[in-house]
Design a binder for these strands. Structure first.
Lengths: 337, 337
DNA sequence: GGGATTACTGCAATCGATTGCACTTCCGCC
DNA sequence: GGCGGAAGTGCAATCGATTGCAGTAATCCC
């Protein structure tokens, strides 16, 4: 029923062997066939509506032209641009991507990665943090190529594409200090993610360097609810000795917005808030959010490029690519009164 | 290199034929094998770290357990929930999804659908509008199952899952009329999309029914820029005889926000604005957006369910599923002064 | 004119699984 | 004791392509 026209059908119609058809239709081997035969075969295959079966080809060539993309959650707005960046590099090169969501759950992740492997993906782009990464290491040893994007994998030397988080945090603090702020809260991202760790470390070291007060609050995940709960807890305990909140990402910052509002505090008049990522719509928030722009689309592109160069064996060293960020000053930060 | 352990390896280790291993490992055929042999084979296959090759299996069984999801643009926030809904139904059933972005470009769409077919997808979930849909019809005739989600395909009787847009528009107008509004602008979505068409038709008929003034402005796409440009044009021409804007979706509404703001008009004091979809973060906009909630995740689930039932031959009628919506009243609508 | 290339094309194996059919063995039963 | 049937397993074909090797015919060169 499906896909009735096969190589053999074309071969029969053209009165040649399937091998000849295969060679004619493949640009790399076309030269092995006489011009005339190739022309005839192409015409016939078009007339018959032949469509190659990528799956069968992959079985024989041991290349599926398929890669797996492992992300925590597609509904987190930073991931769609990454995925589209990946696609934009992959698709013109004949690859397709399976995107899977782990929801930050390690077991789910293991299961999904296994299923990707069973589907014979040629490589993996992973955007979830890993402290253990057992399966990934195993597969890597078996020859599967892996590239990390957005987060890094501590311990395992996979190639990785990240944004320059350190520079971002520094820029934020510099900006806030210039506005007269002296007492900071940092809503840190998960400690088992490289971004969370790096951002909070930079926050601490920058505060120390500048001799200002910076308190770090740990969060389990990068979510609005966590951010809100963290600030709620602070304010409910009467802690108000801070004028600025440096959030680990935009979602945590948005949670801070919510908490401040329910506690009758105004942003930026009472407290300045800064996000991280410049995800879509941050400019439309109330107030428009000051944040750090990370080039997510480009990170996706770069990750895909790295992966394919690994697959093609061009570039086998575990290179680290860091893309520059920029501070976007909007309405959620103001001079301290 | 990759995936060294095959059925044949397990068979050799167990001293049996590959067929026996295959039967032992497949729950459906396990009964054909003696309990003891099955047990032994399972143990050995586990010890050896055998992973089935889904691609090879698909070649033989003519089922790839893969489906294609065709959407306009993943960075439009209504699509991630739909995709996740689809995944949530598909993955537990052994399926995986290829998600492709067409950017509303018909040629790109044709190319991507072809490539999905070459990859032997068992079915397609399509979220892009179609006036022509030539390729899709062709494939459907060849036995490929297709389900539409979010939008319908005029003419082609594919099963479809949509939200109850008519009810949504009615609720909006009712709400606005109750607030004393009498002069409406509708920022219509693309006329070649079923949602755009249905929403604007309902808008017109409701205005007629209630005897109020409603002007429709056509837009090429569902984007912030289009919405802004449309309202800009209106205001630049001095047209101000309206007190409420009913947007075809949240992005157009957000564009209206921008335009009003740059023209010194306040929402909702001067003009009320209503969106459609209740996409993420609409509650955090300035002002929080009144909109219609469409159950995108559930629509994805339902579409996946329909598709699998088509594939399994359970349900072959082109059923239409309409999911209920609800009006979410927030801060962008107010009583007319 | 004959041996050596070259240019095409076909044969058949192969990728890793699934499955119809045939075969053997073992029981049960008359 | 022999026959029928069931249970368990193996053989080999198959899915749709790719590719090393071999074979044929044409061409070249001395």
């Amino acid at each position: 029923m499906r896909n009735r026209v096969t190589l053999a059908d074309v071969a029969k119609a053209a009165g040649v062997n399937a091998a000849t058809v295969s060679r004619s239709l493949n640009p790399a081997t076309e030269s092995q066939v006489s011009k005339e035969t190739a022309r005839k075969i192409k015409k016939i295959s078009k007339d018959l509506g032949y469509t190659p079966n990528t799956v069968a080809r992959g079985l024989r060539t041991r290349k599926s032209l398929t890669i797996g993309v492992v992300i925590p959650d597609l509904t987190n707005p930073i991931f769609p641009p990454i995925v589209r960046g990946i696609d934009s590099y992959l698709i013109p090169r004949g690859y397709s991507a399976f995107v899977v969501n782990t929801d930050g759950n390690h077991e789910i992740e293991q299961t999904l990665i296994s299923s990707l492997m069973e589907r014979q993906v040629d490589g993996l782009i992973v955007a979830t943090g890993h402290t253990e990464g057992d399966l990934l290491t195993q597969y890597h040893q078996r020859g599967v190529k892996v590239v990390m994007v957005n987060r890094e994998s501590p311990g395992i030397p996979f190639p990785a594409v990240t944004s320059d988080d350190s520079a971002g945090i520094s820029a934020i603090i510099e900006h806030l200090v210039a506005l007269g702020h002296k007492n900071f809260i940092h809503l840190a991202g998960p400690a088992d993610s490289s971004t969370g760790l790096l951002r909070s470390r930079t926050f601490v070291s920058e505060c120390k360097r500048l001799g200002i007060s910076g308190k770090v609050i740990k969060n389990e995940s990068y979510s609005i609810d966590e951010g809100q709960a963290a600030v709620d807890k602070l304010l409910d305990h009467g802690t108000r000795n801070f004028s600025a909140i440096v959030a680990g990402n935009d979602l945590l910052a948005l949670g801070a917005y919510h908490s401040l509002r329910t506690h009758g505090l105004k942003c930026p008049e009472d407290v300045s808030v800064v996000g991280f990522n410049n995800m879509p719509f941050t400019a439309d928030f109330q107030p428009p959010m000051t944040t750090v722009n990370a080039p997510h689309f480009d990170m996706g592109v770069e990750a895909a490029r790295l992966l394919l160069s690994q697959i093609d064996g061009i570039d086998t060293a575990p290179v680290k690519v860091t893309l520059p960020v920029s501070l976007i000053i909007r309405g959620s930060t103001a001079r301290v009164l």
